[in-house]
Design a protein around this nucleic acid. Structure first.
Lengths: 255, 255
DNA sequence: TAGTGGTCTAGACCACTAG
DNA sequence: TAGTGGTCTAGACCACTAT
């Protein structure tokens, strides 16, 4: 009696028990959990209850389910480190510029794919707040890119810039010319500073589906602004799976 | 027939429908949703199914439940911006040093609470990797702090430093003396650079309970290293509610 | 085909909150 | 007390995967 009732719900105690086993290393990443019927038997609970416990662990990012196969301890995917080095002139100004966001930490042997399209849209508020002279709803260019690593969608990136900027450099709109996007911005006016604003949130269901994000995985939302001698010329929003990314900043102690 | 069946499950379609209403502004933050029985009636589904739909929206951070009251559209909490300015010498070296992480963006009229305790623990791996001469399991000091804003637990912070460092400055261990923690580190050896490594993940259930984090809210995990003339002296891990934080970095384009 | 997870139901009961 | 959300059950049926 004493150990079976502690005021916590059955599903919570089941989840706690399984989580403890995972954290203790009793279950290793990639291992398959006992089937739901077995767990129900083991914990003397109904199938639904045990499933609710598993759902919690999925939402914590500890377990992934494969329908028709089983529940598995989640493997930690390779984490990519995003340091400021990826903005180095030597990276994008050189002979063989790498895609900007894959510059560091990417292991060898990865297949990187990218799709791009450019169109005109009304400026979202976060763009209007950062691009001088632009109000929400004004037409701006957006360059949408989706990057995959080994077939897994890793991030989406939307770069916004004004129609005037697009006129000054058709290459930007077309996504052509030497170097990457930053090189083309730089050709218009030197990029003096880079600003990154980082938030994190849960993806919405449609987003999860589109980016193929498993349950329990947050996303980073990064707003990156290129500050040039002519002011901010480009505002981009990145959505990146949080389980595949780490940001790394190192700076001198400010006065 | 055609519109009722699209291959998606009932709970997904209900969740999509409610999400669309939220995003369209039909429901405003703070608004109460119709009760579960009403929704069940409206969508011609069982209570359980409608609850599963609501659970999804909670896990997306769009809805919060208050037992015995109802389901509500989630209000966006005030976001605190973490810029590098909070490490400025003028902030912590001045007369009335503010708590480091609240330096910027904190609105007026907030009540800030902090609890602190210091003890010796075996070094976790992330500490051993960053403090020279320390191997995993070696005894180190840890200074644990929990910060609340208006009674809401906002973050926990664990600072790790070596026993040798503690001996050089008893103030660090006691958490006393002029200025904050950084000032005391700085007194031992000038802090030349600050490094912050940022990841995001879902909190575990125990963590959610301890930090009182609502469902659908990820946490930032920040590892901050103080690099001094004597090398890294202090490694701290912060766990911060992601819905109350935004990080802001701005740096010159590296060469 | 057999085993897995996923969805759904009707209904019982508990826990919390407001009036 | 009445209404709300939370937990739990037994059982039916669907969807997917492996063999």
């Amino acid at each position: 009696m004493s150990e079976t009732t502690d005021g916590r719900s059955r599903q919570l105690r089941i989840a706690d028990s399984i989580r403890a086993r995972i954290e203790a290393g009793e279950y290793q990443p990639g291992d398959q959990l006992p089937g739901l019927p077995a767990l129900a038997q083991q914990y003397q609970a109904s199938l639904v209850t045990v499933r609710l416990a598993i759902t919690r662990l999925k939402n914590e990012g500890l377990i992934v389910s494969r329908q028709g196969v089983g529940n598995f301890i989640r493997r930690k995917p390779t984490v990519k480190r995003y340091g400021i080095g990826r903005y180095s002139r030597s990276v994008w100004g050189g002979q063989n510029p790498k895609p900007l966001l894959i510059a560091e930490g990417g292991q060898q042997g990865k297949t990187i794919g990218q799709t791009t399209e450019t169109e005109q849209v009304p400026a979202p508020s976060f763009v209007a707040e950062r691009l001088p002279g632009i109000s929400e709803g004004d037409l701006v260019y957006v360059r949408r890119r989706t990057t995959t690593i080994d077939g897994v969608i890793n991030q989406s990136a939307d770069s916004y810039f004004t129609l005037a900027t697009g006129q000054r450099s058709p290459d930007i709109v077309a996504g052509e010319g030497p170097g990457g996007h930053i090189a083309r911005i730089n050709a218009i006016s030197p990029v003096l500073e880079v600003q990154e604003e980082i938030t994190a949130r849960m993806p919405t269901s449609p987003e999860s589906a589109r980016l193929e994000i498993p349950d329990g995985t947050p996303v980073f939302e990064v707003i990156r602004t290129y500050h040039t001698a002519d002011g901010p010329l480009d505002v981009a929003k990145f959505v990146i799976r949080a389980d595949m990314a780490a940001f790394d900043y190192r700076f001198p102690t400010p006065d």
